[in-house]
C-alpha cells in the first residue's frame, strides 16, 4: 500500500511522527488524550502483571524468602504503587467499555448532513466521557478510602 520512494521522491524529507505521535497530541480535546492514557495504563497493567507473576515465583524459595519479600511490599511506597495500579485498572476497564461500545458505532449517533459550525459525533456525545470520568474519580476515591487510608 505504501508508495515507495523512487526518483525525485527519494529526495523528500520523511515527516512521520512515529511513537511521538501517540504521546504528542497538539491542540486536541479530551478523547485524544484518553487514547494516550489508555495505552499508558495498558502498558502499566501489563508491567504489573509480569512483575506480579515473577514475584509469585518467590513462593518456590520457601516461607522465609516469601515473607522477606512481603515485608518489602508492606512499605508505604509500594502501597502508593498498588493504589496507582488499582486506579489504572479502573480507568482501563471503564474507558475500554466505552471504546468497545463506540467501536461498534453505538452511542455515537447517526450521520448528519454537516452544517457549519461542524460538531462531530465525539463532541456531540461528550457527556458520556464526562460521566465515565466522574465514575472513575468516584471509584478511585472509594478505593483510596476503603483500602489505602
Amino acid at each position: 500500500m505504501e508508495v515507495k520512494a523512487t526518483g525525485s521522491q527519494s529526495r523528500h524529507l520523511p515527516n512521520r511522527l512515529g511513537i511521538k505521535g501517540w504521546a504528542w497530541a497538539g491542540r486536541y480535546t479530551i478523547e485524544r488524550y484518553l487514547y494516550t492514557l489508555h495505552r499508558l495504563t495498558g502498558l502499566g497493567l501489563l508491567l504489573y502483571i509480569t512483575l506480579h507473576l515473577a514475584m509469585n515465583g518467590f513462593r518456590l524459595g520457601g516461607v522465609e524468602s516469601w515473607e522477606d519479600l512481603m515485608s518489602v511490599f508492606g512499605m508505604s511506597g509500594f502501597k502508593v504503587g498498588e493504589y496507582l495500579v488499582a486506579v489504572a485498572f479502573i480507568f482501563h476497564a471503564l474507558n475500554g467499555g466505552r471504546l468497545m461500545l463506540q467501536h461498534l458505532g453505538y452511542t455515537l449517533g447517526k450521520p448528519k448532513p454537516p452544517v457549519y459550525p461542524y460538531v462531530d459525533s465525539m463532541r456531540r456525545r461528550r457527556p458520556i466521557v464526562w460521566v465515565m470520568l466522574a465514575l472513575i474519580v468516584a471509584l478511585a476515591i472509594y478505593v483510596l478510602v476503603a483500602f489505602v487510608i
Binding site: 485524544r32 463506540q102 467501536h103
Partner: peptide, 17 residues
C-alpha cells in the same frame, strides 16, 4: 478511536464515525 481525525476535518465529515 482517538477522534483526532473528526476534530481536524475542516468539512465536518466525521471520519471517526
Amino acid at each position: 478511536l482517538a477522534g483526532a481525525c473528526s476534530e481536524a476535518c475542516p468539512k465536518g465529515v466525521d471520519p471517526a464515525l
